[in-house]
């Protein structure tokens, strides 16, 4: 290892490591200080708050307790109930299937766009980008509107007997899934498209020449090549889907609550910060576990 004060060249400049690191730290400090102060520190505070007691009026009482986590696990004064765990589990399931369906729809869409002539390709791409950037509240509300009892979709569902005559097609699981998938589909499509556009078709053709089945062509030739874009898409979808609360709030109601609603409740009407913090921790752990599992499985896929 060289000494910190020996001369080195760095991007054409003659200097020392020491000097560079001094200058670098100076430049690093404003942004990092901000992130420490308003990202890392509040995160740590949240951890602390999740193990203190809620006072009678919702204030924090600095007494250590694991009560909040016990409550999240379902232990109440009147025995064990799976209510909160159900909500957590449901959030994982919804996030998983939202991601899965988004991926399944994105592949054909990406191939379709990549196959358009150049001019209309940009138009199609822009058509995917627009909902990507349209405010979530508006898009969630748009489903709320379109599933109203006066409009054909709800009427059709009533004819088939899925819902009573004159009722809206919400709140229920179906409406939540509709909302969630339409919300996150562009989050998968856009990064995936970047990979599909660069796809080396000769490998796909080689697989077909070797009489590989469609499934094998996909897993052997297409999937590995589009993995980078797919991974970004999956992360961009799964993470916010886990914490989503606008869609379930409008389209799921009390019947189909997700963890996002639960957290929002604690910081809103219930004013129970410690419990809200504990649920947030639960959500964070589940998200990290989900990403870890994907990373493991993702690597296996890449190796195959």
């Amino acid at each position: 290892m060289k000494r910190a004060d020996s001369l080195i060249t760095w991007y054409g400049e003659l200097t020392t490591r020491q000097q560079l690191l001094k200058r670098g730290s100076l430049l690093l400090s404003p942004g990092m200080l901000w992130l420490m102060l308003f990202l890392v520190l509040p995160g740590l505070v949240l951890v602390v708050v999740s193990v203190v007691t809620r006072g009678a009026y919702g204030q924090l009482e600095w007494v250590f307790t694991l009560e909040n986590y016990k409550r999240l696990a379902g232990f109440t004064l009147f025995g064990w109930t799976p209510d909160y765990l159900m909500i957590l589990w449901r959030s994982v399931v919804v996030a998983f299937f939202t991601t899965l369906v988004s991926v399944l729809l994105s592949y054909p869409l990406c191939f379709f766009i990549a196959g358009r002539p150049e001019r209309s390709r940009y138009m199609w791409l822009t058509l995917v980008i627009i909902p990507f950037w349209t405010n979530m509240v508006i898009r969630a509300y748009a489903w709320f509107l379109i599933l109203s009892p006066e409009l054909p979709i709800a009427k059709l569902a009533a004819v088939f007997g899925f819902i009573p005559e004159g009722a809206p097609l919400y709140p229920n699981a179906f409406a939540v899934y509709l909302g969630m998938v339409s919300m996150f589909l562009p989050f998968v499509t856009l990064p995936l498209y970047a990979s599909v556009e660069r796809l080396d078709w000769s490998l796909v053709e080689a697989a077909q020449d070797l009489y590989a089945s469609r499934i094998r062509t996909f897993t052997q030739a297409i999937l590995p090549q589009t993995m980078p874009g797919l991974s970004v898409g999956i992360i961009l979808t799964f993470v916010p889907a886990m914490g989503m609360f606008v869609v379930p709030d409008l389209l799921g109601g009390a019947k189909y609550m997700l963890v996002g609603n639960l957290i929002q409740q604690q910081f809103g009407t219930s004013r129970d910060w410690p419990f809200g913090a504990a649920i947030s921790m639960g959500l964070m752990v589940l998200t990290m576990v989900g990403l870890q599992i994907y990373r493991r499985k993702g690597k296996e896929v890449q190796v195959v």
Binding site: L7, I8, T9, G12, E13, L14
Partner: peptide
């Protein structure tokens, strides 16, 4: 050119030692 530092040895240009000079 002065874009890399030698570990040892010297560089002369026009008889002048420039080993420790920066590129500029």
């Amino acid at each position: 050119a002065g874009l890399e530092m030698a570990d040892s040895g010297r560089v002369f240009i026009g008889g002048k030692d420039i080993t420790g000079l920066p590129a500029i």
